[in-house]
Design a protein around this nucleic acid. Structure first.
Lengths: 152, 152
DNA sequence: GCGAGCCGTCAGCCTGCTTGACCATGGCGG
DNA sequence: CCGCCATGGTCAAGCAGGCTGACGGCTCGC
């Protein structure tokens, strides 16, 4: 049997994503949050902890569409981590706010994201870790061609 | 408005994957293959061009489950790029073989995968490109925890 | 006071897989 | 030469992480 062919870069990036995501979920489970999904981090990382944040602003920060962010927020709302309250300053808008439970989950998620990244940094070494992040940024920028629906 | 928060590593990897995949598809379209999807590359890169390759072997090479590979092969078969023929050496098995059209598509896909990677290499520079690939390999290895269903 | 435009939402679709279950065939130990 | 388990392919269902399109409600700028 011939030697295993090299994986293409796209595949490698996808596998990397999956690896990080599943590490995050596993670690959160160990830490007492068994119902978290990797996508939730998009909210927990970007939301203003006390005052809450509008859906569209969350989407912008997380670089996804508002429709995509809706799905995540809906899911978090069902699980009791956030609620939507009307925005006092703009009757069109609602503010996504953490519940008490949500604040605990958000804090733990942020710590866990950091832990996963710190572990990766240790694995690769500072220099290579920095290059990895920097290269990914450039890669994404270079090809983007922003999606039609992007909020800018 | 506060500064844009840094994206977490998982998100960055996913965006990188998407960037590479959509570049690949766009470039294949320009080159006269408008119906290709990024996932097809998994077959075209790993299949033995002349003799064909069994489904399970393809899955192993591409690091996915045989069920996942089935979906890709089914799709390619519908589009007329591959066909399944009984394996002369094992009546349980079938060999996935490229059609004439499939051989052209496979050749172009391989060239295009190379072109995308070469472009990325130019963007990042040799050194950083090598570090990127190498880091991704380590990242994936370190976290894997092979999926239940992996073929090894 | 009205038209452009943003906010959130509904509906439908897509990619790229996964797990689970099953059947036919093959190879090997006894 | 007979069981039995492993292997190859397949069907069905489901999940993660989104995207596009369309649209009603509200506001803001002129």
């Amino acid at each position: 049997m011939r030697a295993m062919a090299e994986q293409d870069l796209g595949r490698l990036l996808l596998e990397g994503h999956r690896a990080i995501a599943s590490d995050l979920v596993a670690m959160l489970e160990e830490r007492g949050f068994p119902d978290m999904r990797a996508g939730h981090a998009a909210v927990f990382v970007h939301i203003d902890r006390r005052s809450g944040t509008r859906l569209t602003e969350l989407a912008r920060r997380a670089r996804m569409t508002k429709q995509g962010m809706m799905l995540v927020v809906d899911d978090l709302q069902e699980r009791g981590y956030v609620r939507r309250v009307p925005d006092a300053e703009d009757a069109r808008a609602k503010v996504v706010k953490l519940t008490a439970r949500g604040r605990r989950a958000a804090a733990e998620t942020r710590r866990t994201v950091q832990a996963v990244e710190a572990r990766t940094r240790r694995l690769l070494g500072d220099r290579r870790y920095e290059i990895l992040r920097e290269s990914l940024d450039e890669l994404v920028d270079a090809s983007t061609e922003l999606p039609e629906n992007a909020i800018e």
